Simulated assay, not measured.
Amino acid sequence: MGERDRHRELVGPAPQGEARRLTRELRAAIEEVRSAVLVLAARVRAAHQARVWAALGYSGWAAYAGAEFGVSRSTAYRLLDLAAAAEAIEDVVARQVGPELSHAWDTGLVLPVRAVVDLKGRIAELADLIAERLADAQAEAGGAPLEPGRVGEVVAGAVAELRERPDVPVAELAVAGGPDGYDAEAWRRHVTAGRPLVAEQQQNDRALGEIALRLAPAHLSDRSALPVLAVYADFVGEDPELFLACRRYLITGDWRAVEDDYRGRQARDLLARHGEEQ
Protein backbone atom coordinates (compact mmCIF):
# COMPACT_ATOMS: atom_id res chain seq x y z
CA MET A 1 0.00 0.00 0.00
CA GLY A 2 1.41 3.40 -0.99
CA GLU A 3 1.83 6.41 1.29
CA ARG A 4 -1.08 8.20 -0.34
CA ASP A 5 -3.42 5.20 -0.05
CA ARG A 6 -2.44 4.63 3.59
CA HIS A 7 -3.42 8.17 4.55
CA ARG A 8 -6.59 8.09 2.46
CA GLU A 9 -7.97 5.25 4.60
CA LEU A 10 -7.82 7.38 7.78
CA VAL A 11 -11.14 9.04 8.56
CA GLY A 12 -11.18 11.04 11.79
CA PRO A 13 -11.23 11.42 14.57
CA ALA A 14 -8.03 9.37 14.74
CA PRO A 15 -6.83 7.68 17.94
CA GLN A 16 -4.31 9.77 19.88
CA GLY A 17 -1.37 7.56 18.92
CA GLU A 18 -2.23 7.79 15.23
CA ALA A 19 -2.74 11.55 15.52
CA ARG A 20 0.71 11.93 17.06
CA ARG A 21 2.27 9.81 14.32
CA LEU A 22 0.63 11.91 11.60
CA THR A 23 1.77 15.07 13.36
CA ARG A 24 5.36 13.81 13.46
CA GLU A 25 5.20 12.98 9.76
CA LEU A 26 3.73 16.37 8.95
CA ARG A 27 6.44 18.12 10.98
CA ALA A 28 9.11 16.12 9.18
CA ALA A 29 7.56 16.98 5.79
CA ILE A 30 7.54 20.68 6.65
CA GLU A 31 11.20 20.49 7.66
CA GLU A 32 11.99 18.73 4.38
CA VAL A 33 10.28 21.49 2.39
CA ARG A 34 12.10 24.16 4.38
CA SER A 35 15.41 22.43 3.83
CA ALA A 36 14.65 21.86 0.15
CA VAL A 37 13.99 25.57 -0.45
CA LEU A 38 17.26 26.52 1.23
CA VAL A 39 19.16 23.86 -0.75
CA LEU A 40 17.49 25.07 -3.95
CA ALA A 41 18.43 28.68 -3.15
CA ALA A 42 22.05 27.73 -2.49
CA ARG A 43 22.34 25.66 -5.67
CA VAL A 44 20.69 28.31 -7.84
CA ARG A 45 23.15 30.91 -6.58
CA ALA A 46 26.13 28.57 -7.08
CA ALA A 47 25.04 27.72 -10.63
CA HIS A 48 24.51 31.36 -11.52
CA GLN A 49 27.85 32.45 -10.07
CA ALA A 50 29.56 29.66 -12.03
CA ARG A 51 27.87 30.86 -15.27
CA VAL A 52 26.92 27.29 -16.07
CA TRP A 53 24.95 28.36 -19.14
CA ALA A 54 28.10 29.47 -20.91
CA ALA A 55 29.78 26.10 -20.44
CA LEU A 56 26.68 24.32 -21.75
CA GLY A 57 26.27 26.52 -24.80
CA TYR A 58 23.27 28.62 -23.78
CA SER A 59 22.95 32.36 -24.43
CA GLY A 60 22.09 33.21 -20.83
CA TRP A 61 20.57 32.15 -17.52
CA ALA A 62 16.96 32.28 -18.71
CA ALA A 63 17.68 30.20 -21.82
CA TYR A 64 19.57 27.67 -19.70
CA ALA A 65 16.82 27.34 -17.08
CA GLY A 66 14.12 27.06 -19.74
CA ALA A 67 15.88 24.32 -21.69
CA GLU A 68 17.20 22.33 -18.73
CA PHE A 69 14.28 22.64 -16.28
CA GLY A 70 11.33 23.78 -18.41
CA VAL A 71 10.70 27.01 -16.49
CA SER A 72 9.71 30.38 -17.89
CA ARG A 73 12.02 33.36 -18.12
CA SER A 74 10.24 35.12 -15.23
CA THR A 75 10.52 31.98 -13.07
CA ALA A 76 14.22 31.65 -13.89
CA TYR A 77 14.92 35.14 -12.59
CA ARG A 78 12.55 34.70 -9.65
CA LEU A 79 14.73 31.76 -8.58
CA LEU A 80 17.68 34.16 -8.44
CA ASP A 81 15.64 36.58 -6.35
CA LEU A 82 14.66 33.75 -4.00
CA ALA A 83 18.28 32.67 -3.68
CA ALA A 84 19.42 36.20 -2.84
CA ALA A 85 16.67 36.70 -0.24
CA ALA A 86 17.22 33.29 1.40
CA GLU A 87 20.97 33.78 1.58
CA ALA A 88 20.62 37.23 3.11
CA ILE A 89 18.19 35.97 5.76
CA GLU A 90 20.41 33.02 6.63
CA ASP A 91 23.47 35.24 6.94
CA VAL A 92 21.86 37.87 9.15
CA VAL A 93 20.22 35.28 11.43
CA ALA A 94 23.53 33.43 11.77
CA ARG A 95 25.35 36.65 12.68
CA GLN A 96 22.71 37.85 15.09
CA VAL A 97 21.69 34.70 16.99
CA GLY A 98 24.13 32.00 15.86
CA PRO A 99 24.59 29.65 12.90
CA GLU A 100 22.62 26.87 14.59
CA LEU A 101 19.46 28.98 14.14
CA SER A 102 20.20 30.21 10.62
CA HIS A 103 17.47 27.89 9.25
CA ALA A 104 14.95 28.67 12.00
CA TRP A 105 12.43 30.37 9.74
CA ASP A 106 9.69 28.92 7.58
CA THR A 107 10.59 29.54 3.95
CA GLY A 108 7.09 28.71 2.76
CA LEU A 109 5.55 31.40 4.96
CA VAL A 110 8.35 33.94 4.87
CA LEU A 111 9.19 33.81 1.16
CA PRO A 112 6.12 32.97 -0.92
CA VAL A 113 6.34 34.00 -4.57
CA ARG A 114 4.62 37.33 -3.94
CA ALA A 115 7.07 38.20 -1.17
CA VAL A 116 10.05 37.40 -3.39
CA VAL A 117 8.69 39.78 -6.03
CA ASP A 118 8.00 42.52 -3.48
CA LEU A 119 11.48 42.26 -1.93
CA LYS A 120 13.40 42.45 -5.21
CA GLY A 121 16.06 45.12 -4.94
CA ARG A 122 15.50 45.54 -1.19
CA ILE A 123 17.62 42.71 0.19
CA ALA A 124 20.06 44.96 2.07
CA GLU A 125 17.15 46.83 3.63
CA LEU A 126 15.57 43.51 4.63
CA ALA A 127 18.79 42.27 6.26
CA ASP A 128 19.13 45.49 8.26
CA LEU A 129 15.52 45.27 9.44
CA ILE A 130 15.82 41.60 10.49
CA ALA A 131 19.00 42.38 12.44
CA GLU A 132 17.25 45.27 14.17
CA ARG A 133 14.17 43.21 15.07
CA LEU A 134 16.25 40.26 16.28
CA ALA A 135 18.24 42.64 18.50
CA ASP A 136 14.96 43.94 19.93
CA ALA A 137 13.78 40.38 20.58
CA GLN A 138 17.05 39.53 22.33
CA ALA A 139 16.73 42.60 24.54
CA GLU A 140 13.16 41.63 25.44
CA ALA A 141 14.39 38.13 26.34
CA GLY A 142 16.89 39.64 28.75
CA GLY A 143 19.85 38.09 27.01
CA ALA A 144 18.43 34.56 27.08
CA PRO A 145 18.85 32.55 23.85
CA LEU A 146 15.94 32.88 21.45
CA GLU A 147 13.90 29.79 20.70
CA PRO A 148 13.76 28.72 17.03
CA GLY A 149 10.06 29.51 16.90
CA ARG A 150 10.69 33.04 18.12
CA VAL A 151 13.41 33.56 15.51
CA GLY A 152 10.97 32.43 12.82
CA GLU A 153 8.33 34.85 14.10
CA VAL A 154 10.77 37.75 14.05
CA VAL A 155 11.96 36.99 10.51
CA ALA A 156 8.41 36.59 9.21
CA GLY A 157 7.38 39.82 10.93
CA ALA A 158 10.30 41.73 9.42
CA VAL A 159 9.47 40.48 5.91
CA ALA A 160 5.81 41.45 6.36
CA GLU A 161 6.80 44.87 7.74
CA LEU A 162 9.10 45.63 4.83
CA ARG A 163 6.52 44.52 2.26
CA GLU A 164 4.08 47.06 3.72
CA ARG A 165 6.60 49.91 3.55
CA PRO A 166 6.84 52.08 0.46
CA ASP A 167 10.08 51.36 -1.32
CA VAL A 168 12.61 53.98 -0.16
CA PRO A 169 15.93 52.72 -1.54
CA VAL A 170 18.92 52.93 0.76
CA ALA A 171 21.00 54.34 -2.08
CA GLU A 172 18.51 57.15 -2.59
CA LEU A 173 18.68 58.15 1.07
CA ALA A 174 22.46 57.89 1.08
CA VAL A 175 22.74 60.24 -1.89
CA ALA A 176 20.07 62.68 -0.77
CA GLY A 177 21.03 62.61 2.88
CA GLY A 178 18.96 64.32 5.55
CA PRO A 179 19.10 67.72 7.24
CA ASP A 180 21.70 68.24 9.93
CA GLY A 181 20.53 66.82 13.23
CA TYR A 182 18.68 63.79 11.82
CA ASP A 183 20.22 60.36 12.01
CA ALA A 184 19.73 57.96 9.10
CA GLU A 185 17.04 55.83 10.75
CA ALA A 186 14.99 58.84 11.87
CA TRP A 187 15.19 60.33 8.38
CA ARG A 188 14.13 56.99 6.86
CA ARG A 189 11.07 56.87 9.12
CA HIS A 190 10.05 60.39 8.10
CA VAL A 191 10.52 59.64 4.40
CA THR A 192 8.62 56.36 4.74
CA ALA A 193 5.74 58.16 6.47
CA GLY A 194 5.68 60.88 3.82
CA ARG A 195 5.65 58.66 0.74
CA PRO A 196 2.04 57.39 1.20
CA LEU A 197 0.85 60.97 1.74
CA VAL A 198 2.45 62.08 -1.51
CA ALA A 199 0.89 59.08 -3.29
CA GLU A 200 -2.49 60.06 -1.84
CA GLN A 201 -1.97 63.64 -3.06
CA GLN A 202 -1.24 62.33 -6.54
CA GLN A 203 -4.45 60.28 -6.50
CA ASN A 204 -6.41 63.35 -5.37
CA ASP A 205 -4.88 65.44 -8.16
CA ARG A 206 -5.85 62.76 -10.65
CA ALA A 207 -9.44 62.76 -9.34
CA LEU A 208 -9.59 66.56 -9.68
CA GLY A 209 -8.20 66.23 -13.20
CA GLU A 210 -10.94 63.77 -14.13
CA ILE A 211 -13.59 66.26 -12.94
CA ALA A 212 -11.88 69.07 -14.82
CA LEU A 213 -11.79 67.04 -18.05
CA ARG A 214 -15.51 66.27 -17.79
CA LEU A 215 -16.21 69.99 -17.35
CA ALA A 216 -13.71 71.13 -19.99
CA PRO A 217 -12.87 68.35 -22.50
CA ALA A 218 -9.33 67.89 -23.77
CA HIS A 219 -9.98 69.55 -27.14
CA LEU A 220 -10.37 72.92 -25.38
CA SER A 221 -7.31 75.11 -24.89
CA ASP A 222 -6.30 76.22 -21.41
CA ARG A 223 -7.64 79.69 -22.24
CA SER A 224 -11.05 78.25 -23.19
CA ALA A 225 -11.17 75.81 -20.27
CA LEU A 226 -10.28 78.29 -17.54
CA PRO A 227 -13.60 80.25 -17.41
CA VAL A 228 -15.60 77.03 -16.96
CA LEU A 229 -13.20 75.70 -14.34
CA ALA A 230 -13.24 79.06 -12.54
CA VAL A 231 -16.99 78.82 -12.02
CA TYR A 232 -16.69 75.29 -10.61
CA ALA A 233 -13.68 76.24 -8.46
CA ASP A 234 -15.67 79.10 -6.95
CA PHE A 235 -18.42 76.69 -5.92
CA VAL A 236 -16.03 74.24 -4.22
CA GLY A 237 -13.68 76.85 -2.76
CA GLU A 238 -10.49 76.06 -4.68
CA ASP A 239 -8.07 77.85 -6.97
CA PRO A 240 -9.13 77.45 -10.64
CA GLU A 241 -5.45 77.25 -11.60
CA LEU A 242 -5.23 73.99 -9.61
CA PHE A 243 -8.05 72.45 -11.65
CA LEU A 244 -6.37 73.64 -14.83
CA ALA A 245 -3.07 72.03 -13.73
CA CYS A 246 -4.79 68.76 -12.76
CA ARG A 247 -6.51 68.75 -16.14
CA ARG A 248 -3.11 69.07 -17.86
CA TYR A 249 -1.88 66.19 -15.67
CA LEU A 250 -4.67 63.94 -16.98
CA ILE A 251 -4.08 64.98 -20.57
CA THR A 252 -0.29 64.52 -20.50
CA GLY A 253 0.04 61.82 -17.83
CA ASP A 254 2.83 63.92 -16.28
CA TRP A 255 2.33 64.91 -12.64
CA ARG A 256 4.84 67.71 -13.06
CA ALA A 257 1.97 69.68 -14.59
CA VAL A 258 0.69 70.00 -11.02
CA GLU A 259 3.82 69.68 -8.90
CA ASP A 260 6.15 71.92 -10.91
CA ASP A 261 3.89 74.23 -12.88
CA TYR A 262 1.28 74.88 -10.17
CA ARG A 263 2.62 74.09 -6.71
CA GLY A 264 6.17 74.92 -7.68
CA ARG A 265 5.08 78.34 -8.94
CA GLN A 266 3.12 78.94 -5.75
CA ALA A 267 6.18 78.10 -3.67
CA ARG A 268 8.39 80.40 -5.75
CA ASP A 269 5.87 83.24 -5.44
CA LEU A 270 5.71 82.73 -1.69
CA LEU A 271 9.49 82.84 -1.37
CA ALA A 272 9.63 85.94 -3.54
CA ARG A 273 7.05 87.74 -1.39
CA HIS A 274 8.92 86.68 1.75
CA GLY A 275 12.14 88.10 0.29
CA GLU A 276 10.46 91.41 -0.49
CA GLU A 277 9.25 91.69 3.11
CA GLN A 278 12.76 91.23 4.54
Rank of each mutant, 00 (worst) to 15 (best):
I211F: 07
E238T: 14
P166S: 10
V231S: 09
P217S: 11
E210I: 09
P196T: 09
E164I: 02
P240V: 02
D205A: 15
A230V: 03
A184N: 04
P169E: 02
L215M: 12
V231Q: 07
A199Q: 14
Q202K: 10
R214W: 12
D180A: 14
R188D: 12
S224F: 03
D239Q: 00
A171L: 13
W187V: 12
L208C: 08
P179D: 12
T192S: 11
D222F: 02
A156D: 13
L213M: 15
G194F: 13
E153G: 11
Y232K: 05
A199P: 04
P196W: 09
A160P: 01
V151Y: 03
V231D: 08
R150Y: 05
R206M: 03
R214F: 11
R223C: 00
S224N: 14
Q202Y: 05
V228I: 14
E200S: 15
P166A: 07
L208E: 03
A230W: 02
A174P: 02
E161C: 07
G209T: 04
A156C: 07
V168S: 10
R163E: 14
R163D: 06
V151W: 02
A176Y: 09
G157R: 01
V155H: 01
L226S: 04
A233F: 05
A230T: 10
R150T: 15
L208W: 03
V231R: 10
A176M: 15
T192C: 07
V228Y: 01
P148L: 02
V151G: 05
G237Q: 09
L197G: 10
Q202H: 10
G178S: 14
G178H: 11
R189E: 15
A184H: 11
A212M: 08
L215V: 11
A212C: 11
R214L: 14
P179T: 10
A160Y: 03
D234G: 14
A218W: 00
A184Y: 13
P240S: 04
L197W: 10
R195Q: 00
E241V: 08
D234N: 08
L213E: 13
V228S: 01
P148M: 02
A212L: 06
A174K: 05
A158C: 07
G177M: 10
R206K: 07
Q202I: 11
A199I: 04
H219P: 04
G149R: 03
D167H: 02
A225C: 09
G181W: 05
V151C: 07
A171K: 06
R165A: 09
E172L: 15
Q203F: 09
G178W: 07
E200V: 10
G237P: 10
